[in-house]
């Protein structure tokens, strides 16, 4: 599997993501700088990592979403390439219009940094196939702006089409319907606030995140 990790000024989970991808797939991803206008040939999987791209100026992910490489990521997604956005990466994908809704300041106004329990709401996607539907997993979160917001019609559509991939088992940040991760309509783009790449080996305190990458690998 050929992977790429996009790097923006202010990304800080890019190396964690690269280590996780290499551990699971056996192949180190290409690190692609945001000023690039195209992705390396033959990329099967793109990860948009967490961090504070452009210092979260204007809105989280807003400037990064307009960078040249994101236009290439968007085109790749339209061709069916799997794209995973984690934390700031999720914010970038919503700002880029690749996923619906927006991520706002946590309702409690706190920066939340701890492991949280999630329910795998949909196990019928290339990212979640190796989980059981309804299974509870533990992933870390570390965010200030993870409060998922969308209008009622969009939320109903996401739920009706089975596009809510993960839900917080207990509300943490004010997210509408406790949504922690969503899929696009073609189900080849997943955005989520919790960090699967920080839960891939026992030293992380668990390896619940590993199966997400294994699912992508198995899908190819």
């Amino acid at each position: 599997m050929n992977s790429a990790v996009i790097v923006f000024p202010g990304s800080n989970c890019d190396r964690d993501m690269a280590v996780a991808i290499e551990q699971v797939t056996g192949k180190a991803p290409k690190m692609v700088w945001h000023r690039e206008t195209s992705l390396p040939d033959g990329i099967d999987f793109i990860a948009v990592p967490g961090g504070f791209s452009y210092g979260d100026y204007l809105r989280c992910g807003a400037i990064a979403a307009r960078s040249p490489i994101v236009a290439a990521v968007k085109q790749a997604a339209e061709r069916g390439v799997r794209v995973l956005g984690v934390c700031n990466g999720f914010q970038v994908l919503t700002e880029a219009g690749m996923l619906p809704g927006a991520l706002m300041r946590n309702a409690t106004l706190d920066f939340i940094c701890r492991d949280v329990a999630l329910t795998v709401t949909n196990s019928d996607s290339d990212f979640t196939r190796l989980y059981a539907a309804g299974e509870q997993v533990n992933f870390p979160v570390a965010h200030h702006d993870g409060n998922f917001n969308a209008d009622t019609e969009t939320l109903d559509r996401l739920e009706g089409e089975g596009r809510v991939a993960f839900r917080y088992t207990t509300a943490i940040n004010g997210s509408a319907r406790d949504i922690a991760g969503i899929l696009n309509d073609k189900r080849n783009v997943l955005g989520m606030m919790p960090h699967p790449e920080r839960m891939v080996e026992p030293a992380h305190g668990g390896n619940d995140g590993r199966r997400l990458f294994e699912s992508v690998l198995a899908a190819l």
Binding site: A62, I63, R66, T94, A150
Partner: peptide, 9 residues
């Protein structure tokens, strides 16, 4: 439309 506001919210 394209940057200064996020018209979703």
């Amino acid at each position: 439309q394209q940057l200064l506001a996020n018209t979703v919210i």
